[in-house]
Design a protein around this nucleic acid. Structure first.
Lengths: 213, 213
DNA sequence: GTCTATAATAGGATAGAC
DNA sequence: GTCTATCCTATTATAGAC
């Protein structure tokens, strides 16, 4: 991406992706029509089909863009270095920050993880999304393995711990009304984010860290 | 429910609920048509509308039935008694058992928590579902409060801990292909369930339990 | 309680003018 | 790149016969 690209006015393609991201996050793949997307951008339906040849392609483009953003933040955070436990905590902090900066992400991530049956199974789009998910998970799995090998983390099955962590980190920011009712305030409020982050870190420190006795 | 009811052949209403539960879990509210439900039961579309006057009513009936089942299992498990930590662990074990016995539950639960925007907002159905969710969460919150007051659990914000726990307990069994790829095996296989349960209990024991030093 | 028939609308996708 | 017009199918829901 060139420097000029940073200042360039957003293309129609980008605008479509932005609108679609918000809609898919709120109502899922089947709940959103191409007409609604087009209206949101201020284009005709056919123009949207000019940029994305099918709805499935648009959906996976949205997912891949999100996953790429998260992967970039994650590997950047991990590259700073430090002991595995320190990197794990920073990694979780970064993940939470990204999810909070982009309130559509958590919902879309969770949806993409269990809306397999919504999309045409095993299409080429589906594979690209799976690869992008792998790009996010692999660094975290490697970090867990390293921490366990170094004796800093409790030795456990990495994938099983990882799936629990993903659930507890991503779900709160996808929970919407449910979370609002439970906390008595919006999940994305500064104060709620701060407390969720602290609880998450405490849970991980104690729950995944090596037992000291 | 009478004793005779236990042996009675399932009514059309029950059959519709069963089929709809499976379909809604797989493809969500918008992804399922009433025709598909009717075909699955072996009825005409109009017959389904005779039993449920709208799609929204059918969906909330499915959600409420699930939440009632979970609540029943949960309060039954909590009624056995014991120290808060013991009850919390048994409660989590019971929750996992229910989710495993009914593979549609986890997905439908998560969907119902963040498909608020899918359904007509603030309708009477939506309120019934919210009340049913409260019936499941309240006993768990009370348990956490009791454990903290007794000094058995780390003192923390109950709702924030609860939302993390819900995410980590429910998400794995809703994760479908994603979980399958991560674990290298189906999430509902006996072995995977056993290991997930152990990791979840370890995480809770260490992560929520009082620090011993 | 179940059916056929129908209404009224919206869905994804394409053709072709400009 | 965007538009209008169109195709075909599916959608939720209702009316009324049996």
């Amino acid at each position: 991406m060139s420097v000029a690209a940073l200042a360039r006015a957003p293309s129609s393609r980008d605008k479509i992706l932005d609108v679609a991201e918000g809609l898919f996050a709120r109502r899922g793949y089947s709940g959103v029509g191409m007409r609604e997307v087009a209206d949101g951008v201020g284009l005709g339906k056919s123009s949207v089909f000019h940029h994305f040849k099918s709805k499935a392609e648009l959906y996976s483009a949205v997912c891949i863009r999100i996953l790429a953003t998260i992967e970039r933040a994650l590997v950047g955070s991990l590259a700073i270095g430090g002991k595995p436990t320190l990197r794990l905590e920073r990694c979780i902090g970064t993940l939470v920050d990204v999810l909070v900066d982009h309130p559509t992400y958590a919902r879309l991530l969770l949806r993409s993880m269990f809306e397999d049956d919504d999309l045409p199974r095993d299409g080429p789009e589906s594979e690209s999304v799976h690869r992008a998910i792998g790009g996010v998970l692999e660094p975290m799995a490697a970090l867990l393995r390293e921490g366990m090998a170094a004796g800093e983390l409790r030795v456990a099955s990495v994938p099983h711990v990882l799936i629990l962590l993903v659930g507890s980190m991503v779900f709160p920011f996808a929970s919407g009304d449910f979370g609002h009712e439970l906390l008595g305030a919006d999940v994305f409020e500064r104060d709620q984010v701060r407390r969720l982050k602290r609880e998450a870190l405490d849970l991980v420190r104690a729950g995944v860290g090596a037992t000291h006795g």
